[in-house]
Amino acid sequence: MLDRKAFSDLARKLRSSTQARVIEAADLRRYSRWKIGGVASLLIEPNSVDDVRRVLAVLAEVPCPKIVIGDGSNLLFDSRGLDGVAIRIGAPLSRIKIEGNTARVEAGSWVPHFARAVGCSGLGGIQHTIGIPGTVGGLILMNGGSQRKGIGENLVSARCADMRGDVREYTKADCAFSYRHSALQDKALVVLDAVFELTRGNAGEIRREMISIMAERRRKFPKNLPNCGSVFLSDPEMYGVIGTPGFAVEKVGLKGLRRGGAQISPLHANFIVNVDDASSDDVLWLIHRMRTRVHEETGFWMDCEVRHVAPDGAMRMAHGSAAEKFANATVGV
């Protein structure tokens, strides 16, 4: 593990050999939709696709934890911080090129911006993503979407770099998309850009559909407090018997439950909101309580969409971290 001087030396090397923005002692709360997290030793924002490759080549020689993040919408950073490097794929990598029914987009593009861009060009197929806060790269990795659709339905291919900076193109078949999952999640890869095949339609109708989706999201979901969106995945088997995760949590009486600065949203019970400087442990405690209580009452285990990032860089589904931390705790309600 590197000490502070070694991270400072690494920062100088990155500044001299790449065009990336390099931040030492980065406050991860600034990069979290939950506004939760400690300090990362380094945070790096590459300036271009080629810059990503250069950054990865430098980091490949360094024995420290490395994580890749986008908009932080499906991550819970640990309040103890990250003793390593966070590589952020963001706004500098957000170019969009539309030709005919095809769109090539860089991985740092904000999803609502991408959806609007193709919609205004009269292209449909990804309207369902309009309200999803996050980057295209992150959405591809988890096959994100809404209305039980996934972005993978329209993907043709994605270019990804491994942690040495070597680039390979992955086809839709290579990605093996399933509900909120892709094979890319199981590999140490950085999505660089992707090609989508879309459907020609009427720009006005597409725009009206997206406005309707946004209005519905504003009505149903909490917007005024920091949150990561849906905490638990909607399992098709559970959905057919019980309903959505939010409905299940509400039925077992946990809607509105608070622990420290975190609360199960009184508006939608599949959201956890940061009401007062919540810690990662506050959120993990609530996740464990929601999951175990629903299992006790229904027999179904709910799995998280959210991933917890530990101080050593280990990234795992948040319900796993929650169970490990609170399995033997007395949780009360």
Rank of each mutant, 00 (worst) to 15 (best):
K5N: 14
K5R: 13
L14F: 11
I23Q: 11
Y31D: 02
K35I: 06
I36V: 14
G37N: 02
A40L: 07
S41W: 02
L42N: 01
E45H: 04
P46Y: 01
N47K: 14
S48V: 05
V49A: 04
R53Y: 12
A57T: 11
A57G: 11
L59A: 01
I69G: 00
G70R: 00
N74R: 04
L82S: 00
G90A: 12
G90T: 02
T102C: 09
E106D: 12
H113C: 12
F114P: 00
A115H: 04
G122W: 03
I132N: 03
L139Q: 05
L141S: 04
R148D: 15
R148C: 14
K149S: 08
G152S: 07
N154Q: 13
V156A: 07
A161Y: 05
R164Q: 10
R164P: 00
K172P: 06
K172F: 03
A173V: 15
A176F: 09
F177E: 00
R180F: 09
A183W: 03
L192C: 10
L192K: 00
E197W: 06
N202S: 14
A215D: 14
F221A: 06
N227S: 15
S234L: 14
P236T: 02
E237P: 11
G240I: 06
I242E: 05
I242G: 00
F247V: 15
A248L: 09
V252N: 04
R258A: 09
G260M: 05
G260T: 06
P266D: 06
L267Q: 11
A269Y: 06
F271E: 02
D277V: 12
D281M: 10
D282W: 04
V283C: 00
I287H: 04
R289V: 15
R307I: 10
A310Y: 07
P311F: 11
P311H: 10
D312W: 13
G313L: 10
M315G: 07
M317Y: 10
S321D: 10
E324I: 04
K325F: 10
